[in-house]
Design a protein around this nucleic acid. Sequence first.
DNA 1: TCTGGGGTCCTAGGACCC
DNA 2: TCTGGGGTCCTAGGACCC
Length: 407
Amino acid sequence: MDAFYASVELLRYPQLKGLPVVIGGGRRREDDLLARLRVAHPEHAWSEQNLHEIPLDFFPRIAGYTGRGVITTATYAARQFGVGSAMGVMKAAKLCPDAILLPVDFDQYRHYSQRFKAIITDIAPSMENRGVDEVYIDFTDVPGGQREGGRVLARLIQKAIFDDTGLTCSVGVAPNKLLAKMASEFNKPNGISIVQPEDLEAMIWPLPCRKINGIGPKAEAKLVQHDIHSIGDLAKRDRLWLMQHFGKSYGAWLHDAAHGKDERPIETASEPVSISRETTFEHDLHAVRDREALGAIFTRLSEQVAADLQRKGYVGKTIGIKLRYDNFQSVTRDQTLTAYVNQAQAIRQAAGQCLKRVDLTRRLRLLGVRVGSLMKLEDWQAQGLRAEAAPAQPYTESLFGDDSLSK
DNA sequence: TCTGGGGTCCTAGGACCC
DNA sequence: TCTGGGGTCCTAGGACCC
């Protein structure tokens, strides 16, 4: 199989290209860029249409920001300063106070994501989704896909995407998904890289292990303890030794990955396993003191999850919660019902039961509601299944009530 | 002035059944 | 009166990815 990995850089404002821009921040209303600009410069009538004409000086710099947000992504210019995804905004401000901070805009990302993917499937129908801005493509069967080792097709796709969206994208072409993903990193944000089996030693082995998709910070730290730093170091280790030290399954996978082996096919369709909503509070909340606020948030999360289920056409029967304490420790509880549900009230009810099984004496920073064991609504209806009767108690009862606290 | 929000997959123990 | 082995489901936690 020939795989092709494409990754798009999401940046809407042409005048910001090449500048240190970070996208992220808090969840406050005033983080909307237009709202902020209207407050700062009421003399201008900025709208979605003329957003790209806003002078550079008007974009908010990071310095002066206060809040709890994290960076969602950063341009390559910003990354030069060490700023990166998932970093706290305050830390990013220290590293690069002049960076321009833009609020996240998921509606825009979804819109451009759909266009980006539609353009690709028009050219190469065998596509696997890897999130808003990344896809794998199997172009074995695409006419002309083999020309110049895939470079011709890659250029064609890049051009089609740019012409339609104005977005650039980087592309990696290789014999499998693992290598294609690594290849796509070589030439960001608008390049094409081709990796062939014989390039393994020269191009892949010098890279740090962390570059392998599936080796995260924990695994990397453990590898370093064993004096394994590069992918080449990893490749030289004995397969059985790796299996003994990293587990049978993960150890074998590490060995395969280091040797560039990967036989996973392109998955063109997938069903969701779970649907969830969670929120980190602006300030830590306490179950007793902030009972009302927490109860309202809990209800809202349940309603959002229910709306997501209904909009996407699913029912589920495992209801769960997630809590994060002020010390960042997380706990989860879940409960499997006897019937499938998709109503806020039923979800809220079951989630409330879960809540009674956790320690609520510590302050909380995050609360989440999840529904798993999903089934398609149409399949559920076809089976003639019925939702259980609505719970007797109204779900508006105080969630963080005395029940939850009596230990 | 640490640490988002959506997911997936894996592991591991216990219940329960045959 | 000692204690099998396999299979599935449920639950909790954690690593990892975009």
